[in-house]
Design a protein around this nucleic acid. Structure first.
Lengths: 227, 227
DNA sequence: CGTCGCATTGAGCATTTTCAACCGTAGTGG
DNA sequence: CCACTACGGTTGAAAATGCTCAATGCGACG
């Protein structure tokens, strides 16, 4: 895939064989940056204008969730790109730091370059949804390490919130899928999910009737989701 | 449910209230599409020109991995967007099918709309890397359900391939991180990872010396990764 | 009324985590 | 030069968690 000659220090300014077609010319800067081990490239939440292409070394991208658990999202080596959020002018979803001494090529202002900063409303919406999806993935990767009760609680709260956003009840939920599909979504065996529903019902936290779920004790559910 | 026998392709051209800013004019179609339960919107691998915005109903996006396991990636409700790959003119990473009867708004040709089909080589590379990252996430979500041996095998093969791509040995690997970090990356306790390394060494599949790992039996490792 | 599919429940089993101790190396200071 | 400590890695045993297999319950549909 992204095969970039990883010759550390080869300042290839320009790169003549560009198939530049549409966009107006802009500054093509082949700026470089070097990180020492442990040094951060950026932190989650920062708004970065640039993306980066790894020339040599390796990076670690991670995210510290609200509960303090550190989720490691990627180990990146030469030829890979970090800083996608910059594409969309969005705050970084992850923190990125160097594992070894790492040399990077700075891809300046990719957002402007792609013209993403000036597209119409509907297209913007698609992009926003894409970032949302990306974050949801992070969340799910994190969830996979939680016990089943917590997974279910997290799912229900997320689902409840989404239901609320589209004007439905946030406590009386109508699940969209069969147990089997929901179980696979949550990464559980169907039996385990069934059992988990049962125990939450027996503890009067939920009232479950097939696909209809009523949240009886929201506080308890929240406590279960964020220990 | 509203069993309106689908009006597939109601080309409602128009919709004047666009905040068009940058891009040149193009066909603004507010076409709609209705899916019945179980019906597919698209399959993984198809190249779709359009993205979709869900108006009502719900969709399931999933991917069937090489080993036949079905990974459910998202349950999508009203207000969400599916079909990001169309943004980049890339083949769909996932299959999407309707759970309930679902009504969609078609976002035509988002790629052209964003001008992504005509950006320069370096920017293209960033986009390709982003899609790669997305697929890696899918892969990892899938991995979380595998036993530790398989996870490690998959990681090592992936890492080996990446090392090869940048001109390093594919059998003599220098791991980039400490055990602790690698364990977190793989979603395991450090002790479990250590044990797994040990058993693979005792079976003469690997030779492990701290961060140096040599693959002794590639075939066995492959068999372990893809059952 | 029987059967099919889905959901639930139960019991035993497998894997992983946790807690604890131990080992080897590297750094530090006497 | 040799403790001594610190740290990461490894190993062991117990406990927890979720999975598999099997049986049962329940509702829809013919």
């Amino acid at each position: 895939m992204a095969e970039i000659s990883a010759l550390p220090g080869t300042h290839r300014v320009g790169n003549a064989n560009h198939r530049r077609v549409g966009r107006q010319p802009f500054e093509v800067a082949a700026a470089r940056r070097i990180l020492r081990p442990g040094e951060h490239l950026f932190h989650a939440g920062e708004v970065c204008a640039d993306a980066y292409l790894i020339c040599s070394g390796s990076l670690e991208s991670y995210f510290v969730h609200a509960d303090g658990e550190e989720q490691i999202l990627g180990l990146h080596g030469a030829g890979e790109v970090v800083g996608f959020d910059a594409l969309f002018g969005a705050p970084a979803s992850t923190s990125v730091k160097a594992i070894d001494t790492t040399s990077l090529k700075v891809v300046r202002n990719p957002a402007r370059r792609l013209g993403l900063d000036q597209c119409d409303g509907e297209a913007r919406e698609v992009i926003a949804a894409m970032l949302e999806e990306y974050r949801r993935f992070m969340q799910r990767l994190h969830m996979e390490r939680h016990p089943s009760e917590r997974r279910l609680a997290e799912f229900l709260l997320d689902y409840s919130e989404r239901a609320g956003r589209r004007g439905l009840s946030t406590i009386h939920l109508m699940l969209p899928t069969s147990r089997r599909v929901l179980a696979r979504y949550l990464g559980l065996a169907p039996e385990t999910l069934s059992r988990t529903f049962s125990t939450l019902q027996s503890r009067a936290i939920l009232d479950v009737d097939n696909r209809e779920v009523t949240i009886l004790d929201l506080a308890a559910l929240r406590a279960m989701a964020k220990p």
